[in-house]
């Protein structure tokens, strides 16, 4: 800057101004372009995303029943009720458990699988995945094609204590203690069993996402690492993960938001919230508060809390990623 600034100072501003001037002229073309591509989406966004949100926040401060136009402003009393509501706090706890466990498990698993099918193959010759990797890729993507609700119903049948596939296999293998074992009905296993289903459903998708990311990494990097004597694990931690860091971050946030919701899976597998409410999540509690108990004000407050937790989570992921070195962009 200083080196340049001395010599060209008088002349440099002028051409810059002339260069900018045509940009300031608002031709019809430009205005209509702005209107259509910026104005319309913004209006839509305001009308259908922001305004309902603001409204929900307002309703959370009222005692609206949901079935009459009348409502009274009650301040933050709904939030106070929520804090003292054991069932709701339990559902918050369950949602937070989900958001801690699910993304980590899913992403680690899918990352390992993605490595296997792309760069985990023979350590001689060209960098490639395991044999038949395209077959595995298709197989593991299967569950993602099935709609969530079907996955839930299917696994509910698999987990059935008396007629389910799982207990059938286990008892056939000689584990008699599992005959009639209620996987979804026992407090110790209900949450784990449900988490397993969600992970099962998403591993394939994230694997494909990471495969795409890994394919974008130049093969020379892997070759160089291999020549330097790096093993598969070291290659993964030192090359793959840093190179697809952004993908992982995005995946983490997506999976986290999905875990905070998890509504479909929970409703399909344990509509009542599970044994001792061990699989009850916030979205379920919100739904029943609104529609079966007719407390829309309180339900809106739950929605606001859920939104706050979701935003906090996304923020945390960004911060953690930045702190662990995500800001040092190594690709450039």
């Amino acid at each position: 800057m200083t080196a340049l600034g001395t010599g060209v100072a008088p002349g440099s501003t002028k051409p810059a101004r002339t260069r900018r001037r045509p940009g300031k002229k608002l031709t019809f073309d430009k205005v209509s372009f702005f209107l259509v591509f910026l104005g319309v989406p913004v209006v839509f966004y305001l009308a259908f995303v922001v305004s309902p949100f603001v409204q929900a926040v307002y309703y959370s401060l009222t005692d609206w029943s949901g079935f009459s136009p009348e409502m009274n402003f009650v301040g933050i009393s709904n939030y106070r009720t929520l804090l003292g509501d054991g069932t709701f706090m339990k559902s918050v706890g369950n949602s937070i458990t989900l958001v801690i466990v699910l993304p980590v498990v899913t992403i680690v698993l899918s990352l390992v699988l993605a490595s296997f099918v792309t760069v985990g193959g023979s350590s001689h010759g060209r960098i490639k995945g395991l044999r038949n990797s395209s077959f595995y890729r298709v197989i593991s993507f299967f569950p993602y094609v099935v709609p969530a609700i079907i996955i839930g119903i299917m696994w509910q049948q698999i987990y059935d204590p008396s007629a389910g596939l799982l207990n059938g296999v286990l008892t056939r293998l000689g584990f008699q203690q599992f005959s009639s074992f209620p996987w979804l009905g026992d407090e110790r296993t209900a949450m784990v069993a449900t988490m397993f289903v969600i992970v099962w459903g998403f591993v394939g998708f994230y694997m494909v996402l990471f495969v795409a990311g890994i394919k974008g990494i130049p093969a020379e990097l892997y070759e160089a690492a291999r020549i330097d004597g790096a093993g598969r694990f070291r290659t993964m931690t030192r090359i793959t993960i840093p190179m697809i860091r952004d993908n992982i971050q995005t995946a983490y946030i997506y999976m986290g938001i999905l875990s905070l919701d998890a509504f479909v899976y929970m409703v399909a597998m344990n509509p009542g919230g599970g044994p001792n409410n061990s699989t009850l999540v916030m979205a379920q509690q919100l739904f029943s508060t609104a529609f079966t108990q007719g407390k829309f004000g309180l339900a809106c407050a739950m929605g606001v809390v859920l939104a706050a937790i979701t935003l906090t989570f996304a923020g945390l992921v960004f911060v953690v990623n930045w702190l662990t070195g995500g800001h040092e962009d190594i690709t450039e």
Partner: peptide
């Protein structure tokens, strides 16, 4: 019931406000 419920947008607060 589960099906219908599951298809509903989870943020019921938003629906409610509409």
């Amino acid at each position: 019931g589960a099906l219908a419920t599951a298809f509903a947008v989870p943020l019921a607060g938003t629906i409610a406000s509409c």
